[in-house]
Protein backbone atom coordinates (compact mmCIF):
# COMPACT_ATOMS: atom_id res chain seq x y z
CA UNK A 1 0.00 0.00 0.00
CA UNK A 2 2.77 2.50 0.85
CA UNK A 3 4.42 1.88 -2.51
CA UNK A 4 1.12 2.71 -4.15
CA UNK A 5 0.66 5.86 -2.08
CA UNK A 6 4.19 6.98 -2.85
CA UNK A 7 3.62 6.40 -6.56
CA UNK A 8 0.39 8.36 -6.51
CA UNK A 9 2.10 11.20 -4.65
CA UNK A 10 4.72 11.27 -7.39
CA UNK A 11 1.93 11.57 -9.96
CA UNK A 12 0.29 14.29 -7.89
CA UNK A 13 3.61 16.14 -7.76
CA UNK A 14 4.02 15.90 -11.53
CA UNK A 15 0.49 17.20 -12.01
CA UNK A 16 1.19 19.98 -9.51
CA UNK A 17 4.24 21.03 -11.52
CA UNK A 18 2.17 21.14 -14.70
CA UNK A 19 -0.56 23.09 -12.94
CA UNK A 20 2.02 25.59 -11.67
CA UNK A 21 3.32 25.96 -15.21
CA UNK A 22 -0.16 26.49 -16.56
CA UNK A 23 -0.87 28.97 -13.80
CA UNK A 24 2.01 31.23 -14.82
CA UNK A 25 0.68 31.86 -18.31
CA UNK A 26 -3.01 31.33 -17.79
CA UNK A 27 -3.67 32.18 -14.18
CA UNK A 28 -1.40 35.22 -14.03
CA UNK A 29 -1.16 36.54 -17.58
CA UNK A 30 -4.54 35.29 -18.78
CA UNK A 31 -3.10 33.45 -21.77
CA UNK A 32 -5.10 30.33 -22.44
CA UNK A 33 -2.84 27.33 -23.04
CA UNK A 34 -4.55 24.13 -24.08
CA UNK A 35 -1.30 22.91 -25.58
CA UNK A 36 0.03 21.81 -22.23
CA UNK A 37 0.32 18.12 -23.18
CA UNK A 38 2.44 19.16 -26.15
CA UNK A 39 4.96 21.00 -23.99
CA UNK A 40 5.05 18.14 -21.51
CA UNK A 41 5.78 15.87 -24.48
CA UNK A 42 8.60 18.15 -25.69
CA UNK A 43 10.24 17.98 -22.27
CA UNK A 44 9.69 14.23 -21.94
CA UNK A 45 10.91 13.34 -25.42
CA UNK A 46 13.76 15.82 -25.23
CA UNK A 47 15.20 14.38 -22.06
CA UNK A 48 14.42 10.79 -23.05
CA UNK A 49 16.13 11.05 -26.44
CA UNK A 50 19.19 12.84 -25.13
CA UNK A 51 19.76 10.38 -22.30
CA UNK A 52 18.90 7.20 -24.23
CA UNK A 53 20.35 7.95 -27.67
CA UNK A 54 23.22 10.29 -26.84
CA UNK A 55 23.97 9.01 -23.36
CA UNK A 56 23.72 12.41 -21.72
CA UNK A 57 23.65 12.38 -17.92
CA UNK A 58 20.16 12.68 -16.49
CA UNK A 59 20.39 16.16 -14.89
CA UNK A 60 21.64 17.56 -18.20
CA UNK A 61 18.86 15.77 -20.07
CA UNK A 62 16.23 17.15 -17.73
CA UNK A 63 17.66 20.65 -18.06
CA UNK A 64 17.71 20.31 -21.85
CA UNK A 65 14.11 19.05 -21.88
CA UNK A 66 13.05 22.04 -19.80
CA UNK A 67 14.91 24.41 -22.10
CA UNK A 68 13.45 22.85 -25.23
CA UNK A 69 9.93 23.29 -23.87
CA UNK A 70 10.74 26.92 -23.05
CA UNK A 71 12.01 27.53 -26.58
CA UNK A 72 8.93 25.86 -28.06
CA UNK A 73 6.75 27.98 -25.77
CA UNK A 74 8.50 31.22 -26.74
CA UNK A 75 8.20 30.33 -30.42
CA UNK A 76 4.52 29.57 -30.14
CA UNK A 77 3.90 32.74 -28.10
CA UNK A 78 5.48 34.81 -30.88
CA UNK A 79 3.40 33.04 -33.51
CA UNK A 80 0.15 33.66 -31.68
CA UNK A 81 1.03 37.20 -30.60
CA UNK A 82 -2.23 38.58 -31.97
CA UNK A 83 -4.54 35.83 -30.80
CA UNK A 84 -6.68 36.04 -27.67
CA UNK A 85 -9.20 33.91 -25.85
CA UNK A 86 -10.90 31.20 -27.87
CA UNK A 87 -8.56 31.57 -30.83
CA UNK A 88 -5.54 31.15 -28.64
CA UNK A 89 -7.18 28.06 -27.15
CA UNK A 90 -7.69 26.53 -30.61
CA UNK A 91 -4.15 27.20 -31.80
CA UNK A 92 -2.50 25.90 -28.63
CA UNK A 93 -4.67 22.78 -28.72
CA UNK A 94 -3.59 22.34 -32.32
CA UNK A 95 0.04 22.74 -31.31
CA UNK A 96 -0.25 19.85 -28.85
CA UNK A 97 -1.78 17.65 -31.53
CA UNK A 98 0.99 18.57 -33.96
CA UNK A 99 3.58 17.52 -31.39
CA UNK A 100 1.75 14.25 -30.81
CA UNK A 101 1.54 13.58 -34.54
CA UNK A 102 5.23 14.33 -35.01
CA UNK A 103 6.01 11.92 -32.17
CA UNK A 104 3.81 9.29 -33.88
CA UNK A 105 5.15 9.70 -37.40
CA UNK A 106 8.79 10.76 -37.26
CA UNK A 107 9.83 7.23 -36.53
CA UNK A 108 13.54 7.83 -37.18
CA UNK A 109 13.62 10.25 -34.24
CA UNK A 110 10.91 9.21 -31.82
CA UNK A 111 10.48 5.51 -32.63
CA UNK A 112 6.88 6.29 -33.61
CA UNK A 113 3.92 4.86 -31.73
CA UNK A 114 6.20 2.22 -30.21
CA UNK A 115 7.55 4.96 -27.98
CA UNK A 116 10.91 5.04 -26.24
CA UNK A 117 11.44 2.47 -23.52
CA UNK A 118 14.32 1.82 -21.17
CA UNK A 119 14.74 5.47 -20.17
CA UNK A 120 17.08 5.59 -17.19
CA UNK A 121 15.78 6.80 -13.83
CA UNK A 122 17.79 8.20 -10.93
CA UNK A 123 19.22 5.19 -9.08
CA UNK A 124 16.82 2.86 -10.91
CA UNK A 125 18.11 -0.68 -10.60
CA UNK A 126 20.53 0.26 -7.84
CA UNK A 127 17.74 0.44 -5.25
CA UNK A 128 14.52 -1.49 -4.71
CA UNK A 129 11.43 -0.34 -6.66
CA UNK A 130 10.00 1.12 -3.47
CA UNK A 131 13.15 3.12 -2.71
CA UNK A 132 13.13 4.32 -6.29
CA UNK A 133 9.60 5.59 -5.68
CA UNK A 134 10.82 7.50 -2.65
CA UNK A 135 13.78 8.99 -4.53
CA UNK A 136 11.42 10.27 -7.19
CA UNK A 137 8.97 11.43 -4.55
CA UNK A 138 11.69 13.63 -3.06
CA UNK A 139 12.88 14.83 -6.44
CA UNK A 140 9.41 15.69 -7.76
CA UNK A 141 8.14 17.37 -4.62
CA UNK A 142 11.48 19.14 -4.23
CA UNK A 143 10.93 20.54 -7.71
CA UNK A 144 7.37 21.48 -6.81
CA UNK A 145 8.67 23.36 -3.76
CA UNK A 146 11.32 25.15 -5.75
CA UNK A 147 9.00 26.09 -8.60
CA UNK A 148 6.41 27.17 -6.05
CA UNK A 149 8.84 29.50 -4.29
CA UNK A 150 10.22 30.91 -7.50
CA UNK A 151 6.85 31.52 -9.08
CA UNK A 152 5.51 33.01 -5.83
CA UNK A 153 8.39 35.48 -5.88
CA UNK A 154 7.78 36.13 -9.52
CA UNK A 155 4.11 36.68 -8.94
CA UNK A 156 4.75 39.27 -6.25
CA UNK A 157 7.50 41.03 -8.14
CA UNK A 158 6.86 43.92 -10.51
CA UNK A 159 6.99 41.33 -13.31
CA UNK A 160 4.05 39.47 -11.77
CA UNK A 161 2.12 42.69 -11.38
CA UNK A 162 2.54 43.45 -15.07
CA UNK A 163 1.28 39.97 -15.93
CA UNK A 164 -1.83 40.52 -13.83
CA UNK A 165 -2.29 43.89 -15.47
CA UNK A 166 -2.12 42.20 -18.88
CA UNK A 167 -4.71 39.71 -17.75
CA UNK A 168 -7.09 42.41 -16.60
CA UNK A 169 -6.62 44.87 -19.48
CA UNK A 170 -3.85 44.74 -22.03
CA UNK A 171 -4.45 48.21 -23.42
CA UNK A 172 -4.14 49.83 -20.07
CA UNK A 173 -0.84 48.04 -19.55
CA UNK A 174 0.35 49.12 -22.98
CA UNK A 175 -0.63 52.70 -22.31
CA UNK A 176 1.33 52.51 -19.07
CA UNK A 177 4.38 51.80 -21.21
CA UNK A 178 4.69 48.04 -20.73
CA UNK A 179 6.02 46.08 -23.74
CA UNK A 180 3.06 43.71 -23.96
CA UNK A 181 4.48 41.17 -26.40
CA UNK A 182 7.75 40.75 -24.53
CA UNK A 183 5.91 40.11 -21.28
CA UNK A 184 3.53 37.67 -22.90
CA UNK A 185 6.33 35.70 -24.53
CA UNK A 186 8.32 35.52 -21.30
CA UNK A 187 5.34 34.44 -19.22
CA UNK A 188 4.36 31.80 -21.74
CA UNK A 189 7.88 30.43 -22.08
CA UNK A 190 8.35 30.27 -18.31
CA UNK A 191 5.11 28.36 -17.99
CA UNK A 192 5.98 25.89 -20.72
CA UNK A 193 9.46 25.42 -19.25
CA UNK A 194 7.87 24.17 -16.04
CA UNK A 195 5.64 21.84 -18.07
CA UNK A 196 8.74 20.58 -19.85
CA UNK A 197 10.42 19.92 -16.50
CA UNK A 198 7.37 17.92 -15.40
CA UNK A 199 7.51 15.97 -18.67
CA UNK A 200 11.22 15.19 -18.28
CA UNK A 201 10.72 13.98 -14.70
CA UNK A 202 7.75 11.91 -15.87
CA UNK A 203 9.89 10.25 -18.56
CA UNK A 204 12.60 9.30 -16.07
CA UNK A 205 10.07 8.08 -13.53
CA UNK A 206 8.07 5.85 -15.87
CA UNK A 207 11.03 4.85 -18.01
CA UNK A 208 8.80 4.96 -21.06
CA UNK A 209 7.24 7.63 -23.25
CA UNK A 210 4.80 7.13 -26.13
CA UNK A 211 2.62 9.55 -28.09
CA UNK A 212 -0.54 8.10 -26.49
CA UNK A 213 0.62 9.42 -23.13
CA UNK A 214 0.29 12.99 -24.33
CA UNK A 215 -3.29 12.91 -25.54
CA UNK A 216 -5.52 15.93 -24.79
CA UNK A 217 -6.83 14.06 -21.73
CA UNK A 218 -3.71 15.13 -19.83
CA UNK A 219 -4.35 18.80 -20.63
CA UNK A 220 -7.93 18.43 -19.46
CA UNK A 221 -6.83 16.98 -16.12
CA UNK A 222 -4.44 19.85 -15.51
CA UNK A 223 -6.91 22.54 -16.60
CA UNK A 224 -9.38 20.97 -14.18
CA UNK A 225 -6.74 20.95 -11.46
CA UNK A 226 -6.10 24.63 -11.93
CA UNK A 227 -9.77 25.63 -12.17
CA UNK A 228 -10.66 23.53 -9.14
CA UNK A 229 -7.71 24.83 -7.17
CA UNK A 230 -8.21 28.44 -8.13
CA UNK A 231 -6.75 30.17 -11.18
CA UNK A 232 -3.95 32.60 -10.44
CA UNK A 233 -3.22 31.03 -7.09
CA UNK A 234 -0.04 29.03 -6.61
CA UNK A 235 -1.36 27.11 -3.63
CA UNK A 236 -4.58 26.52 -5.49
CA UNK A 237 -2.69 24.94 -8.40
CA UNK A 238 -0.94 22.47 -6.10
CA UNK A 239 -4.10 21.71 -4.13
CA UNK A 240 -6.04 21.24 -7.36
CA UNK A 241 -3.48 18.79 -8.71
CA UNK A 242 -3.61 16.74 -5.52
CA UNK A 243 -7.41 16.87 -5.67
CA UNK A 244 -7.47 15.53 -9.22
CA UNK A 245 -5.29 12.56 -8.26
CA UNK A 246 -7.38 11.95 -5.14
CA UNK A 247 -10.51 11.98 -7.29
CA UNK A 248 -9.02 9.77 -9.99
CA UNK A 249 -7.67 7.23 -7.53
CA UNK A 250 -10.24 7.56 -4.73
CA UNK A 251 -13.09 6.77 -7.08
CA UNK A 252 -11.33 3.50 -7.83
CA UNK A 253 -11.92 2.35 -4.27
CA UNK A 254 -15.30 4.00 -3.80
CA UNK A 255 -16.71 2.47 -6.96
CA UNK A 256 -15.27 -0.87 -5.87
CA UNK A 257 -17.14 -0.62 -2.58
CA UNK A 258 -20.53 -0.47 -4.27
CA UNK A 259 -21.81 -4.03 -4.44
CA UNK A 260 -23.49 -5.52 -7.47
CA UNK A 261 -21.68 -3.49 -10.10
CA UNK A 262 -19.71 -5.02 -12.94
CA UNK A 263 -16.17 -3.70 -13.49
CA UNK A 264 -17.33 -2.04 -16.71
CA UNK A 265 -19.87 -0.10 -14.69
CA UNK A 266 -17.19 0.77 -12.13
CA UNK A 267 -15.07 2.22 -14.91
CA UNK A 268 -17.93 4.29 -16.26
CA UNK A 269 -18.99 5.38 -12.78
CA UNK A 270 -15.44 6.48 -12.02
CA UNK A 271 -15.27 8.77 -15.00
CA UNK A 272 -18.73 10.11 -14.28
CA UNK A 273 -18.00 10.83 -10.63
CA UNK A 274 -14.78 12.67 -11.44
CA UNK A 275 -16.75 14.87 -13.81
CA UNK A 276 -19.55 15.33 -11.31
CA UNK A 277 -17.23 16.31 -8.48
CA UNK A 278 -15.61 18.95 -10.62
CA UNK A 279 -18.95 20.22 -11.89
CA UNK A 280 -20.21 20.59 -8.33
CA UNK A 281 -17.04 22.34 -7.30
CA UNK A 282 -17.32 24.78 -10.16
CA UNK A 283 -21.00 25.36 -9.45
CA UNK A 284 -20.63 26.06 -5.75
CA UNK A 285 -17.11 27.39 -5.58
CA UNK A 286 -16.21 29.09 -8.82
CA UNK A 287 -13.21 30.86 -7.39
CA UNK A 288 -11.62 27.47 -6.66
CA UNK A 289 -10.51 25.80 -3.46
CA UNK A 290 -7.83 28.35 -2.62
CA UNK A 291 -8.65 31.48 -4.58
CA UNK A 292 -6.11 34.11 -5.54
CA UNK A 293 -5.97 36.44 -2.55
CA UNK A 294 -5.81 39.82 -4.12
CA UNK A 295 -5.31 41.55 -7.39
CA UNK A 296 -3.41 44.55 -6.18
CA UNK A 297 -1.62 43.96 -2.94
CA UNK A 298 1.27 41.52 -2.96
CA UNK A 299 0.34 39.13 -0.18
CA UNK A 300 2.59 36.08 0.38
Amino acid sequence: MDAYLAAMLVFAGLYALMALGLNLAWGLAGMVNLGLAGFVAVGAYGSALLTVRLGWPMPLGIAAGTLLAAVAGAGLALLVARLRGDYLAIVTLGFAEVIRLIASNETWLTNGTDGISGIPGPLRGAVTPQQFNLVLLGLVWGSVGLVFLLSARLSHSPFGRVLRALREDEEVAAVAGKPVLAFRVRAFALGTAICGLAGALYAHYNGYVAPDGFAPLLTIYIVLALTAGGGGSMRGAVAGAVLVIVLLEGTRFLAGAIPGLAPVQHAALREASVALALLLLLRWRQQGLIPERTLTKAAP
Binding site: Y4, A7, E249
Partner: peptide, 30 residues
Protein backbone atom coordinates in the same frame (compact mmCIF):
# COMPACT_ATOMS: atom_id res chain seq x y z
CA UNK B 1 0.45 2.59 -15.03
CA UNK B 2 -1.64 3.98 -12.18
CA UNK B 3 -4.04 1.03 -12.41
CA UNK B 4 -1.17 -1.44 -12.48
CA UNK B 5 0.37 0.25 -9.43
CA UNK B 6 -2.86 -0.27 -7.57
CA UNK B 7 -3.11 -3.92 -8.60
CA UNK B 8 0.50 -4.66 -7.67
CA UNK B 9 0.94 -2.54 -4.53
CA UNK B 10 -2.53 -2.60 -2.99
CA UNK B 11 -4.09 -5.85 -4.16
CA UNK B 12 -0.75 -7.71 -4.25
CA UNK B 13 -1.71 -9.62 -7.35
CA UNK B 14 0.26 -12.70 -8.41
CA UNK B 15 -0.21 -11.98 -12.10
CA UNK B 16 -1.50 -9.21 -14.36
CA UNK B 17 -3.43 -10.24 -17.46
CA UNK B 18 -5.36 -8.85 -20.39
CA UNK B 19 -3.48 -5.67 -21.36
CA UNK B 20 -4.53 -4.76 -24.91
CA UNK B 21 -2.91 -1.61 -26.34
CA UNK B 22 0.80 -1.99 -27.08
CA UNK B 23 1.61 1.36 -25.47
CA UNK B 24 -0.13 0.33 -22.25
CA UNK B 25 1.64 -3.02 -22.19
CA UNK B 26 5.04 -1.40 -22.76
CA UNK B 27 4.37 1.12 -19.99
CA UNK B 28 3.13 -1.48 -17.51
CA UNK B 29 5.74 -4.18 -18.25
CA UNK B 30 8.64 -2.60 -16.27
Amino acid sequence: VRSARKLIDVDRVSAVMGTWASAVTTAVAP
